[in-house]
Design a protein around this nucleic acid. Structure first.
Length: 489
RNA sequence: GGGGGCGUAGCUCAGGGGUAGAGCAGCGGCCUUUUAAGCCGCCAACGAAGGUUCGAUUCCUUCCGCCCUCACCA
């Protein structure tokens, strides 16, 4: 922060000088409140009402045009923008001279009737105004706005002031989340909250953040998923639940990954992954049609069409098409060898094949324009999912891809406690020595299952990615107010 | 962590081994219906540290930060 303070010293000092002068004139700009008569949008709607009587508006000055003894300025609140006009024969000599101390960025309350200028601009003829807050830093440029992505992320408020697109994106994010809650509530789901600080982080792949609790003298981890706790609630008899909140993964950053991210997890007792597919379609098309007003839109230049029903492609079929591998005679053990035979870049395979890598390979085989459920994955990659009755190597699971993004993941939840324990230990055994020490099998979770968990469908939707998709944002940093960045020098 | 690109004024952009240029913003002046107001004048910057060189903002090295990409992950 030190640098900016020095850099903008001259501009800042000039504004502090104006601030002092305001105070000397008995007008402390941080002192007063203001009774807003209406928002600017309301004022614009009801302009005719205020041709005669006065209106009281407030907002921030975003442009200032001095014209001799008069000023035109743009006043903006969250709802809209309106021009204000200050002239000394209306506002008075004293007030007019005070207006010299106003800068772009200051907050103002104004009062006066509305008229239309000869160029047709709706304008408040200011009879009185008060300074509600003085800005002592210059705002980014009015025409080109703020483009420096680093400043846009680190000082998001400047981005929000300068860029309409940013304001829209975050408003949409809020409406999307609100809509999800409404849609789920309409279907009888209730929202629950489970621990973000967990003794044993589980329910997903990925490294956890570690922290320490003083009084308990124990290590705790930030959750990588709420899954195992939500299933405990199924055991407890809750039948339709969801949690919509943050999870944390201690992994690298990318345009699709922020260390803290927002996930929706939904569980429905006596359902399975087929039911969750329907629910996913309903949720996402419901959101799109209510928020965007349509089911087709562009994502990064590609036309996406959400018209139901969505494609459901068997994982094995995609493997067959892409790699000519028949999953019937392939196990996880020799899958890597089989893939190498297909001439796939073997460097990538040397380190072994993770679930994520495999999905990535397959997602390249999925049409980005149409939403596609990739269903029935290799069971060994899905320790929490039920196996298929007719093929024990496959699990009742789907991953949903839209526009090249993986936006949802769901399965029929495994509720056989003995199999669950075995599969968790199998997974644990594959870990490296260090990981084995950090990650343990959550026996307490298995204990819950031993008391009986109803069959259930579970669904996870990456909210940040869904918002990216619906706001046509190329990076997760565009949909998270304060994305994680490195430290400053 | 690997690879590629980038870092010039408060903001948006030029430039380039020899005095660093513009627009917006700011300051001063003229202007009472402008709106990217206009006109005149002024203020203001090469991410940091080393090196090469008579001379570095420009070339080289290291560091810091940002973007893209690969890997871990969703």
């Amino acid at each position: 922060m030190e640098r900016e303070i020095l850099d903008s010293k001259g501009l800042r000092e000039e504004r502090i000088r104006k601030l002092k002068e305001l105070k000397e004139r008995g007008l402390d700009p941080y002192e007063g409140g203001f009774k807003r008569g209406s928002t600017i949008a309301e004022a614009r709607d009801k302009e005719s009402e205020f041709k005669e009587k006065r209106i009281k508006l407030c907002g921030r000055i975003t442009a200032l045009r001095r014209h001799g003894q008069t000023y035109f300025a743009d006043l903006r609140d969250e709802s809209a923008k309106i021009q204000i006009y200050i002239r000394k024969d209306t506002v008075g000599e004293e007030k007019a001279s005070i207006f010299k101390l106003i800068d772009i960025g200051d907050f103002l309350g104004v009062e006066g009737p509305i008229f239309t200028t000869k160029t047709g601009e709706l304008t408040v003829l200011v009879h009185g105004f008060s300074v509600l807050a003085k800005s002592i830093r210059p705002l980014p440029e009015k025409w080109h706005g703020l483009k420096d992505v680093e400043i846009r992320y680190r000082q998001r408020y400047l981005d929000l002031i300068s860029n309409e697109k940013a304001r829209e994106t975050f408003k949409l994010r809020s409406r999307i989340i609100e809509k999800i809650r409404t849609l789920l509530a309409q279907r009888g789901f209730i929202e629950v909250e489970t621990p973000m600080m967990q003794a044993i982080p589980g329910g997903a792949e990925g490294r956890a953040f570690k922290t320490y609790h003083q009084a308990l003298d124990r290590d705790l981890y930030l959750r990588i998923a709420p899954e195992l706790y939500l299933k405990r609630l199924l055991v407890g008899g809750m039948e339709k639940i969801f949690e919509l909140n943050r999870s944390f993964r201690n992994e690298g950053l990318s345009t699709r990954h922020n260390p803290e991210f927002t996930m929706l997890e939904v569980y429905q007792a006596y359902a399975d992954y087929e039911v969750m597919m329907d629910l996913t379609e309903e949720l996402i098309t419901g959101i799109a049609s209510s928020i965007l007003g349509k089911e087709n839109f562009k994502y990064q230049g590609r036309e996406i069409n959400l018209k139901r029903p969505w494609k459901r492609e068997k994982f094995s079929k995609l493997m067959e098409e892409k790699f000519k591998i028949n999953l019937e005679d392939v196990t996880v053990g020799n899958l890597v060898d089989e893939l190498k035979k297909t001439g796939l870049d073997s460097d990538k395979l040397e380190k072994g094949l993770t679930k994520t890598q495999l999905l990535k390979l397959l997602s390249e085989n999925v049409e980005p324009e149409e939403p596609t459920f990739v269903i029935d994955h290799i069971a060994d990659f899905c320790p929490l999912a039920k196996r298929h009755k007719d093929n024990k190597n496959l699990s009742q699971r789907f991953e949903l891809f839209i526009g090249g993004l993986e936006v949802a993941n769901a399965y029929s939840e495994l509720n056989d406690p003995l199999e669950q324990r075995e599969r968790l230990y199998n997974q644990w055994n594959e870990l490296g020595e260090e990981e084995k020490r950090e990650k343990k099998v959550d026996e307490d979770f298995v204990l819950a299952l031993e008391h009986g968990m109803p069959p259930a469908g579970g669904l996870g939707i990456g909210i940040d990615r869904l918002v990216m998709l619906l706001t046509d944002s190329p990076s997760i940093r565009e949909v998270v107010f304060f994305p994680q960045l490195k430290g400053r020098p």
